[in-house]
């Protein structure tokens, strides 16, 4: 390479790094400023259909794993297990992808119905790689389906997250487990309120406003609800307490909460476009035997 070419390359490099640096600085000062939001919306309209297509291509392969259970050579074993284990029987009954989807949708409608939410169903078409340190997913519903930022997202198990940005046909959802998320909560029964925070890991940490409140593993919690139901409508099941550790310093305790939703296996979700007129409190929590009241 000639020295002049070297200089030209270095000039280009400096220019590109400068532009990147300017963008990062802008984002740090004014998060999601109008020009950036426009760029992102544009990218969403381009990449949404591509992600939808790619997901549609691989979904049958996902289903294949489940369908293997239907084949004849496994039928006998399935029968044997059926009689042995009633819990396993429930899982095995969902052998076809379609019935599994119907069940998932029913469950979603069940939760929505019990809480009198009106939901728009959507599918997950993209998940952010974990090394981005962001817990977000893309879903295949957007402004055209009535979505807008700060709507609550649920599925059959409970709270999934909230809409971050809504593109035309796809939207980005910020999951409850993202380390930047804090949610107001209410405990089942005691009605104590507190704040639940994402950790980036599988569990969430809970801080109750009343430090004396009684807490035991197994206690369940629902969303407290935000003003006008955005970003969180009230009464959505979130999870249950799995561990209460007294902190070595100070009076606070570290309370760990296991969410009901399996965030690594998200598929069908519902976006709450209309919230209940009355706060359902903890009425949407399934009764202890597992059915929705």
């Amino acid at each position: 390479m000639q020295p002049s070419d070297d200089r030209r390359t270095l000039r280009t490099l400096a220019l590109l790094l400068g532009v990147s640096f300017a963008l990062i600085t802008l984002e740090a000062r004014v998060p999601n400023s109008p020009p950036i939001a426009m760029l992102k919306a544009g990218a969403a309209s381009v990449f949404g259909p591509l992600q939808q297509g790619a997901t549609a291509l691989v979904r049958p392969i996902d289903g294949l794993r489940t369908r293997v259970g239907n084949s004849e050579q496994l039928a006998a074993e399935v029968d044997r297990l059926r009689t042995e284990n009633s819990a396993l029987r429930q899982q095995l009954s969902a052998t076809s992808v379609n019935t599994a989807e119907v069940a998932e949708l029913n469950e979603l409608l069940g939760v929505a119905g019990a809480g009198q939410y009106r939901v728009v169903p959507a599918r997950v078409i993209g998940m952010g790689p974990a090394q981005g340190l962001t817990q977000t997913v893309t879903v295949d519903a957007g402004r055209n389906d009535g979505l807008k930022p700060d709507l609550t997202v649920i599925n059959g198990d409970g709270l999934v997250g909230r809409v971050l940005t809504a593109g035309l046909h796809s939207s980005t959802v910020l999951l409850t487990v993202d380390p930047s998320v804090s949610i107001g909560i209410r405990m089942e029964g005691s009605q104590e309120i507190g704040v639940l925070s994402g950790t980036g890991g599988a569990a969430l940490t809970l801080q109750l406003l009343n430090p004396q409140a009684r807490l035991r593993p197994g206690d369940r919690l629902v969303t407290f609800g935000s003003r006008a139901g955005r970003p969180y409508v009230p009464g959505v099941p979130i999870g249950e307490v799995i561990a209460v550790n007294r902190a070595t310093d100070g009076p606070s305790r570290r309370v760990q909460v296991q969410p009901y939703v399996h965030f690594t296996r998200l598929d069908l979700v519902g976006i709450v476009v209309e919230q209940p007129r009355q706060n359902p409190r903890d009425a949407v929590l399934p009764n202890r035997s597992g059915e929705i009241r």
Binding site: V19, S20, F21, A22, L23, I24, L26, E27, A28, P31, I36, L39, K40, A43, A44, F47, G48, Q51, G126, M127, G128, G132, L133, T134, T136, V137, T138, L164, T165, G167, S170, S171, T172, V173, L174
Partner: peptide, 9 residues
């Protein structure tokens, strides 16, 4: 590209 939510750049 969605679902990215870090600082652009």
């Amino acid at each position: 590209m969605p679902p990215a939510d870090h600082a652009v750049g």
